[in-house]
Simulated assay, not measured.
Amino acid sequence: MGEAVLWGVVAASPLLVGAVLALVRRWPPKWLGIVLGFGAGALMASIAFELWEEGLRLAGPVPLVTGVAVGAIAYYVAARILDARRAKKGGSAGGASLAVGALLDGIPEQLVLGIGLASGEGIGVALVVAILVSNLPESIGSASDLLEDGMRRGRVVLLWAGVAALCALATVAGFAITDAVGPEFRAAANGVAAGGLLVMLVDSMVPEAQSKAEESTGLATVLGFAVAAGLALAA
């Protein structure tokens, strides 16, 4: 169990670190867009080479595709609720939408990580670096947007600390329930993460990056994809 706690904290910590980095300095819009584009590319690689590929290997397409549908619908509904609430206050829901995406990605992903640890599967350095590459830009972008919308600095830190804590706890939960679940559950969890991420990328992260970095977005996205794909394959 101690190992699950350790790796849960390691995997979730980039979410909080990114929020703190957004507080330390004000990122110029173009640089923020490049960071978001890089993170979007890294998340695309995570979907393709980790979540989807591993889900198919574990249990085939049915539980994986079912999970994708659940994750996509869950993110869509949550994002529309956020849009409605922010519209009443006259702000943007971009930063909050990225936080919801991180939560819907992080919880099932780290649940699977905990199950893998309990099953005796090792954790590679490349995998840890790949998680950092995808999570850090996401939280930097979200926290920066939330600050621009007027959210207090303390609330931004608490929000991302809460997201990171829930994701870390998911690793411990996965470790604890390993004997009670089969490969179909793990495949479905991968699908939930992939579905939520795909909708978040199209709805929020890529448009946000494009609005800030403009013509640099595509190149940053490809670089993020290349780095994360290389790390995933190395893992």
Rank of each mutant, 00 (worst) to 15 (best):
I81E: 08
G116R: 10
A143Q: 09
L104I: 15
G94K: 02
V112A: 14
W27V: 15
D105V: 09
A78Q: 06
V24I: 15
G90S: 09
S144I: 05
A102S: 15
G120T: 12
V77R: 03
S139Q: 10
E50W: 00
L113E: 01
G101T: 08
P63W: 04
M44L: 15
I123N: 02
L136C: 10
P63N: 10
F38Q: 01
G91P: 00
E53L: 12
E53C: 00
S46H: 11
L117A: 04
I123D: 01
I123M: 13
G120F: 08
L21H: 07
L103T: 15
I81N: 00
P28G: 04
G122R: 12
A22I: 04
G141R: 06
R26Q: 15
G91F: 02
P28V: 07
I115P: 01
G41E: 12
K30P: 00
F38K: 01
S92T: 13
E54V: 05
G41F: 11
A42L: 04
E138Q: 12
W31R: 13
L111W: 04
L32I: 07
A102I: 09
P137Q: 05
L32Q: 07
L113F: 12
A118T: 07
L82K: 07
V62R: 13
A69G: 14
K88Q: 13
W52A: 14
G94F: 01
R80A: 02
G116I: 00
P63D: 10
L64E: 11
G106D: 04
V24R: 13
A118P: 05
V35D: 04
S97D: 08
L56K: 09
A93Y: 08
I131V: 15
I131H: 03
L132S: 10
V20I: 15
L104G: 08
L127P: 00
G39Y: 08
